[in-house]
Amino acid sequence: MSAVETTRRPSIAALVEGVLNGHRLHLARAISRVENQEDDAGELLAALYPHSGRGHIIGVTGAPGTGKSTLVTALAQSYRNIGLTVGIVAIDPTSPFTGGALLGDRVRMRSLAGDPGVFVRSMATRGSLGGLSKTTGDVVTVLDAAGFERILVETVGVGQAEVEIASTAHTTLVVEAPGLGDEVQAIKAGILEIADILVVNKADRPGADRTIRALEMMLEIEGDGARYVRHHGQLLRVESPVEDDEEAGWKVVVMKTVATDGTGVEALRQRIDAHRRWLLESGELAMREQLRIAHTLENILRAELNRRIASRIRPGSLDALVERIRRRESDPYSAAADLLAHL
């Protein structure tokens, strides 16, 4: 069985070489090792990291059923049409009860099958709550090092506060669909604030215009562009001259798509590319990279500290302390400070 085991667990050096040379099985295995946080994952990532930093990372987030998978597929197709390679990471939730997951995003991605310029990986959240899994950022790094020019990251169907994607992606799309809420939903804090581009998908459905107006009104409150007034209960758009203000800053706009038939997808892709150009020219890209790296470093430090602390606390040694706290002879704050001081 030793020959089989060798093919099952290639060495780090072999994996790195495979990933850098477009060996798809090695790429898949490298991703597994990172996702499973195996002991040598850090070594693998350290070897791949110098080759990363070239791909443009596009986050696609939004509520369940807004059409994220279909939109990701259509965008990937659009990038393939202009000759760019695409890596996709699609995330679905892990059951908090069984630890199992049903990863169904591939059902929508069948048109990408058989294209060697595309690599799709499904991931389960494995207990993370921010819309991504703990290792999504690292898996993106592996795809980036493998040379994919555009990396699309599809979050789980999110609610209002899962904003972690913004610290992983260069360009964040927030996808909405008609009929999901009124203008008050649109001005709530959270998910909408992280959008670089807002997308109303399923724009052929009834109510699409209303959704678009609500989102545009929300954007208008933030500043420039057309103004909106209420007239007999109807929202009316009052055009005001829009300067080309790309010099001043990035203008978040609402784009309409029908991902199932491709309507608006080309325009969306061009808007994403415009965002990339703006990021590069304004110096914002370097700032976002700094944030992303700080975030990564912090996560690694936190995980390592947790591991070290956990390894120094003898199993069961906290029980007596917990009992003392329960009897109010101590309190959790002093007990924690005391424990840490003696580690």
């Binding site: 892990t94 059951s95 069984t98 630890g99 199992g100 997951a101 049903l102 990863l103 169904g104 591939r106 059902v107 499904s122 389960a124």
Partner: peptide, 9 residues
């Protein structure tokens, strides 16, 4: 899924 596996459908 209920058996705790990650199922890609």
């Amino acid at each position: 899924r209920d058996a705790g596996f990650e199922v890609i459908y």
